[in-house]
């Protein structure tokens, strides 16, 4: 079992296997996301209370969900970096942190634009919105810390510790709407309960969440490949790969 785990850590092995999945991830992701978005924008019924402004949910929920789930993945990778010193885990953290930053920004932005017509304000310092803003700063901090340290190994450890420290923010984001009273409403999707909306609303939402997940998978693969190529320039397999592609 541990042997497989260590094979997983080999950048060369990852490079080969990810190239096989990438086209499927991209095609499936774009297809699902577009299906969800078109369905949500044009075909889903409007909400009895909010009218058409609720259609922002079809990108707000996927981006907010991804923002948190990318951070959880980064934290798991940080544990692997600290305990097993596996290079690939560190490559993952560095490759996806900017994606997490963009998606967190998008979740905050779409939330603000949605808040204006429904709540009557762009922003309020309630627990949910504030903890989400902290997540944005955490992503920014991870990227900045990585850039600030030149030595690859010490950067990897420092970044891993920061990511791990920040992971306590994730349960705060998730349960903020239940632990404290907030302006933000509780989640519409829960693992254990029925969604609080009819299928013609939650099916497109689920499609766009899955679509964005697959697109994230593709982005993670391609960005990790970039990071691996730049780190392993001096190895023979990178040279063979680069020269074979070009000659």
């Amino acid at each position: 079992m541990w042997q497989f785990f260590h094979k997983l850590g080999s950048p060369k092995w990852f490079f080969g296997i990810s190239a096989r999945f990438m086209p499927w991830l991209l095609a499936g992701g774009v297809l699902l996301l577009m299906a969800g978005v078109v369905w949500g924008l044009a075909f889903a019924p409007k909400d009895y209370l909010q009218g058409n402004s609720y259609r922002i949910i079809f990108i707000h929920v996927p981006t907010a969900f991804m923002a948190q789930s990318i951070y959880i993945m980064m934290a798991s990778a940080a544990v692997v970096t600290l305990v097993w010193r596996m290079k690939l885990a560190d490559v993952f953290v560095k490759a996806v942190a900017p994606v997490g930053l963009v998606l967190t920004f998008l979740a905050l932005f779409t939330g603000a634009v949605w808040g204006k017509p429904t709540w009557g304000t762009w922003w309020i310092w309630d627990a949910r919105l504030t903890s989400m803003l902290i997540l944005l700063f955490l992503y920014g901090g991870v990227i900045a810390l990585d850039r600030a340290i030149n030595d690859e190994k010490s950067a990897a450890r420092a970044v891993a510790v920061l990511v791990l420290v920040g992971v306590v923010n994730i349960p705060i984001i998730k349960y903020s709407v239940e632990w404290w009273n907030t302006l933000h409403q509780p989640a519409s999707f829960k693992l254990t309960e029925k969604p609080t909306m009819p299928p013609e609303m939650w099916v497109p939402l689920l499609l766009s969440v899955l679509g964005l997940y697959l697109i994230f998978g593709w982005l993670a693969c391609i960005r990790m490949q970039t990071e691996i190529l730049s780190r392993e320039q001096r190895t023979r397999w990178v040279k063979e790969f680069v020269m074979r592609g070009r000659s």
Binding site: G51, N52, R55, I59, L106, T110, V113, P117
Partner: peptide, 20 residues
């Protein structure tokens, strides 16, 4: 127009797709 909510909805989708 989306009953007056058009600017909000379309701004969100535009920013989302451009950034992605």
């Amino acid at each position: 127009t989306m009953d007056g909510h058009g600017p909000y909805v379309w701004a969100c989708y535009a920013v989302f797709f451009v950034l992605m």
